[in-house]
Amino acid sequence: MSKADVAAVILWIGATLYAVFGGADFGAGFWDLIAGDAEKGERPRAQIQRSLTPVWEANHVWLIFILVVLWTAFPEAFGAVMTTLYVPIALAAVGIVLRGAGFAFRKSIRSLEYQRAMGAAFALSSVLTPFFMGAVVGAIADGNVPAAGNGDAFSSWLQPLPLFTGALFVASGAYLAAVFLVVDSRRSGAADLESYFARRALAAALVAGAFAVAGLFVLHADSSYIYDRLTDEALPLVVVSALCGLGVLVQLLRGARRGLRPLAIGAVVAVIWGWGVAQFPYLLPTSLKISQSAAPGPTLDAVMIVFAIAAVVVLPSLGLLYWLSQKELLGE
């Protein structure tokens, strides 16, 4: 494994953590959005807020991590993506502003009217942001980003696969969030909320699963390179994802909670790594290989050292935050 490959793995680890934890935060926004009017949606929204408040900012930093690793270790790929997919990327950036600010403001104001407005900004952008991020990822997987950059600003992502990937991102975030919220509600001792989110987790699992299967067909029609590899080298991971997804369904139908979170995470992680394996050795299939885009050796060394420090410093801190949060030691 070359240094460039290691850097690509680091990038993928960051993307995985963002997809799971950041994705779940966006998904929680989705449930907030469709929770109904102020009265009906009050308790689910309260649970969503309690679950998100201490962790969303830390989870958001994975996105920064992805960006800095990409531009440091693979500057050419970064340039190519940015000069081609700037429309969905800019829209995602606006969504990030509205999501974070809306969420932070909503809980700091008292007037119901303004809370509604801020809540709408938070919830709506929680759906749009992962959609545009998914469109970016789908456009890359689709091979629509030329290595030299400056690809078409619209036809690069207004295609079936990117739009489908956007929808899949929204669905999988909602799926993870619902599963996490089931466990959180259970811990809070709110049985009605537990079943409220369990019903939604089940629906989201079915939708996300259907999207994933349908996605394979779109891939088949659209992008033969990824499809071929997904059904070959990456097939074990696809199978793992499907099994985890089925496991979640079974547990939800049985009303059991054991292993719910690990299984749901496993389903999403396996897809992300399946995609990674399918893309290898390309960063931008099939125009730019990992090795062609990589920064000089010392820079890659620096990225690895930074990641090692992050593993030693950030992960235990993040663990502490989650532990305190799960122990209900954090609250307003």
Binding site: I64, V68, P75, F78, G79, A80, T299, V306, S317
Partner: peptide, 20 residues
């Protein structure tokens, strides 16, 4: 970024840890 990200970017990678 494309030309100098591999030099200039290192500082931001470190900033990522601090921000985290």
């Amino acid at each position: 970024m494309e030309r100098f990200g591999d030099a200039f970017g290192i500082a931001f990678a470190i900033e990522g840890i601090f921000f985290f």
